[in-house]
Simulated assay, not measured.
Amino acid sequence: MMIGTTLNKRYRIQSLLGSGRCGKTYLAQDIQATKDSLCVIKQFEPLAKDPLSLRKAKYLFAREVKVLKILGRSDRISDLLGHFQQGEQFYLVHSYIEGEDLGQELGSNKRWTESQVVALLREILAILEVVHNERVIHQDIKPSNIIRRKSDGSLILVDFGSIKKIYNQMANAEGKTSLTVPIGTKGYMPPEQKSIKPQLASDIYAVGMIAIYALTGVKPEDLPRKQDTDTVQWRNLIQVDENLAQLLDKMVCPDFRQRYSSASEALMALRGCKLGGKLKLFDYSSLIAVLTLIAAILGGSYHYHQLNNSVEENPNTSYQQLN
């Protein structure tokens, strides 16, 4: 057990957060930090320990670190605080985000309103746009990887599956494809991701499933699907605005070629999605059009009333004379 151990003469392990085939995740305390000393440490140990494999792991690790540093420039993505190698093990040190994950706000038959879901989509897609602009695929977007930061209520995206990515790249490089581990979570993974051929659109599928979960209160893995197409059957569970339903159907389409290709494209579609096409309070163009129509109706009615009175007073008056 590593509990109580100090890594790199700096990070004291407090508890084990998770473990799997590819590595382990720990909550630790940075004993050199003056504030915000809690951090999250991810450990990766290559299966093969020969010099060539270790060099390959070191290269892949350095490449992943570079990507994470770029993404960490956004204050809505978990920051990479440090990285190091100790023996044959590699470590990533991430900032600890105080707050509760989105999963605490979903489920238990809770149903969000359409407006709440649109706002949620807008916030998640805006964060994901930063990721996709760097041509990075998160591959494991799910409620537990989205933290609502306690300090300001903002959503923060965490856990890019870096250790699993390195593990898979090592396995593929060594020709051991049977050891390859799919990155993702049941219910949020589209077909191409299960086949270990993820696309940017794979992340769009996961975000769409979160939105459907929020609307229906049903976990994605529990939603019925068509056996022949793997299409999610969710519309019969709740009455929802048609524009929003069509947008979500496209986000979770089994064929990634028919989905929005990136967060930017999905965000653009969302901005054009008007719930029910209802008149908004400050939609001046629509308001003017409605007022103009009302004025025309009232004006026509007044003209007809005047015409009718004139004819009654002077039956011999022709229509042309009145006009």
Rank of each mutant, 00 (worst) to 15 (best):
2 M>Q: 10
4 G>Y: 06
6 T>R: 11
9 K>R: 06
14 Q>E: 13
23 G>N: 06
27 L>V: 10
43 Q>D: 08
45 E>A: 11
49 K>L: 10
49 K>Q: 14
52 L>K: 15
66 K>Q: 12
70 I>F: 05
74 S>M: 04
75 D>A: 05
79 D>A: 13
80 L>I: 03
81 L>G: 01
89 Q>N: 11
90 F>G: 00
99 G>M: 04
100 E>I: 03
117 V>Y: 07
120 L>K: 11
132 H>E: 00
133 N>A: 15
134 E>V: 00
135 R>L: 11
136 V>R: 08
136 V>F: 04
138 H>G: 03
140 D>V: 05
141 I>E: 01
143 P>R: 06
148 R>T: 01
150 K>W: 09
153 G>H: 05
161 G>N: 04
162 S>D: 06
166 I>H: 03
170 M>P: 05
170 M>L: 13
172 N>C: 12
189 M>K: 07
202 S>A: 12
203 D>E: 14
220 P>R: 02
220 P>D: 00
220 P>V: 00
223 L>R: 10
225 R>V: 12
226 K>P: 01
230 D>Y: 04
230 D>L: 09
235 R>C: 09
239 Q>G: 13
243 N>L: 08
244 L>Y: 01
248 L>C: 06
249 D>W: 11
251 M>F: 13
252 V>A: 11
253 C>N: 12
257 R>L: 12
292 T>D: 09
301 S>W: 12
302 Y>N: 12
303 H>K: 15
307 L>Y: 11
309 N>S: 14
